[in-house]
Design a protein around this nucleic acid. Structure first.
Lengths: 366, 366
DNA sequence: TTGTAAGCGTTATCAT
DNA sequence: ATGATAACGCTTACAA
């Protein structure tokens, strides 16, 4: 005798067999009556449905059905940080929205999985969850262990903004090109002293100025992760520009407050830069606040540029100079990749177009 | 011969029986070796693990395990609108964050389910998904059909901000009291002509002025849903105040743009109100923008109050007058209710405290 | 059109 | 400490 798995609510729940018996048909017929995937006479179906209602049967158990069919209708979204941080970023939300749109099309739903929840390695939680596919959202370098575990399970894996190492098909944009365009725009305006507010390089909330040594430690062509790619591009671009200085400050989190704090360390320096490039619009908003607090006119005293093209709802007619990226489309593209992979194809990487949008927050220095 | 469920990746995946056979033990022993829920000698466990590695076995299939155990480690979050709208609201994000925090504690993950995806009734999708519990997020009046379906399945259901009808245990705040406090604050300052920007009353994006008839149609003590409760409270409070007029305009969505548009219809009227109460901080930001666009000084020419206590990142030293509610705690409370219900308890409704935070956006009229 | 039977991959119980 | 067995609830190829 095996134990009956805990059945909440006391009485044993009716199964499709019970319904079939009550309707005087075989389980297989009852199954067909529910799924509609086969020839069943109308009268039979009616009888089955009546019996189901009678027995308070709520339809086939999703778990059993999934086990039998080998698909469970779940696409996991692995976000690097805890949910609160991930979704505080309008960019991420837009991505998620696009993803949900396409995933809904596949009769699947999104399962949210924080990569680094409290104690576990993340892999444990992730591999103990039923899923058809996993979308790695902004995961710098997904642990090889995790990737292996998912692969062993036959889980389709797709990445967004991850390193194009070939391990996982990725949806991304030209972070390097975008950054270079921003630098070119500012240098073209005459700026020779730039400050870059970088996205967090790690999940520990560590922020603050990045020394040359720090930057070198990232590698000359730092590949993995959005912040690193943009940093590398900013260094390269300023190196190429004549007599241009650039300083980097890392934000602890991608939050307005952190952008403000990071900007402050540059603006309060005796020789403050004439322009700030924030690696996200959220951080750029922090820069604008820092400038406002100090009575600095933007763009008169300070130029500020962002990255993402998210709508910031600034007061008045201020429009942030930024790189617009198709965030929702990013999510959709990832969704389509999942669909393709689920169908047995091997999707190629997708590179989405970006565009420099010049707003009112950048102008000539002085 | 039954068909083998589609096994992505060609070769048949190893099962725990395969591993057991390779390790020279019984399946049950292998199971114990993985779950750790029983006495297994170290040498045996080592042999099983080795065999698993050898066969590229990624551990017990979550689906089968869930079926057998009767729990699947999934808590569904049902959001009224499409994800993009739900998460554009910082309040919702905070709630979700708190929920995720507690749910993670239960070794469970969050499944996002848009209540009204494109075509289906919502119930169909929801009941074809494996879940231990469902959290109804801001669902005005969850279809009885849906509730019934979930209940038949033995799914624990918890609501946030829903109607306290007793059908589902709810986490909520005193929307009526908060609204009354805002009205009292403004009337106390001397305002006699108020405008209320309401949250959407439906999912159709319909916005615009609400006539007396519209309001009456909501019922004198409109119960279900946050917008209705706050509307009813605002009507009651202004009715009680002497010689006070109040006009209502519905925002199509809970978005800054919609708040701005709704505010515009009031501000562009010949006899514009001297104060606006927005039913969310997001909408209040729209009001501020509308005022800014029209060169209206806040609070000199116009007072603006919000609701939620979300951080809006306004420029300068502006702080929004609003009702602060513990959004993250709301999510946590719902998570704890889920935990309790899963443990067999019947959780009571939870009413969380709110507080009127007076900022710089409200002041005496003229 | 309907029924039969063989799994899907686990794990809890009981016996050894 | 380990093994045999019986479910968990469903679907599908095939026979009738």
């Amino acid at each position: 005798m095996t134990s009956r798995p805990s059945t909440r609510g006391g009485a044993r729940r009716a199964t499709i067999s019970d319904v079939a018996r009550a309707a005087g048909v075989s389980p297989s017929t009852a199954s067909l009556a529910f799924s509609g995937a086969g020839p069943v006479s109308d009268t039979t179906r009616a009888r089955v449905l009546a019996a189901a209602r009678e027995l308070d049967y709520g339809g086939p158990d999703p778990l059993a059905r999934s086990l039998r069919r080998g698909r469970c209708g779940v696409v996991a979204v692995v976000v690097g940080e805890r949910l609160g941080y991930a979704f505080r970023d309008p960019m991420m939300v837009a991505v998620l929205d696009g993803l949900a749109e396409v995933v809904g099309t596949l009769d699947s739903s999104l399962l949210l999985v924080p990569a680094r929840s409290s104690a576990d390695s993340g892999a444990a939680r992730l591999t103990s969850l039923a899923m058809d596919a996993a979308v790695l959202l902004d995961c710098e370098a997904p642990a090889a262990a995790l990737l292996g575990a998912l692969h062993r399970r036959g889980v389709v894996v797709v990445g967004i903004d991850g390193p194009a190492t070939g391990a996982v098909p990725q949806v991304r944009i030209d972070d390097e090109g975008g950054t270079a365009a921003l630098v070119a725009h500012l240098c073209g305006l005459g700026h020779r002293d730039l400050g870059v507010i970088t996205l967090p390089l790690g999940p520990d909330g560590a922020g603050g100025p990045l020394t040359e040594a720090d930057l070198d430690a990232l590698g000359p062509d730092a590949v993995p992760g959005v912040p690193r790619r943009r940093i590398a591009a900013a260094r390269a671009a300023t190196l190429a520009a004549p007599e241009t200085r650039v300083r980097f400050v890392q934000a602890g989190w991608n939050l307005v407050e952190e952008g403000e704090r990071a900007a402050a360390t540059l603006l309060d320096a005796p020789d403050r830069p004439t322009a700030l490039i924030a690696q996200s619009d959220v951080l750029a908003l922090g820069c604008l606040r820092a400038a406002s607090t100090r009575g600095l006119d933007v763009p008169g005293d300070l130029s500020v540029a962002g990255f993402d093209g998210v709508d910031l709802h600034l007061m008045g007619s201020i429009r942030l100079t930024t790189i617009e990226q198709p965030a929702t489309e990013k999510g959709r593209a990832a969704g389509r990749m999942v669909a393709a992979a689920l169908a047995g194809d091997t999707p190629d990487d997708v590179l989405l177009p970006i565009v420099l949008r010049i707003g009112t927050t950048t102008g000539p220095p002085n």
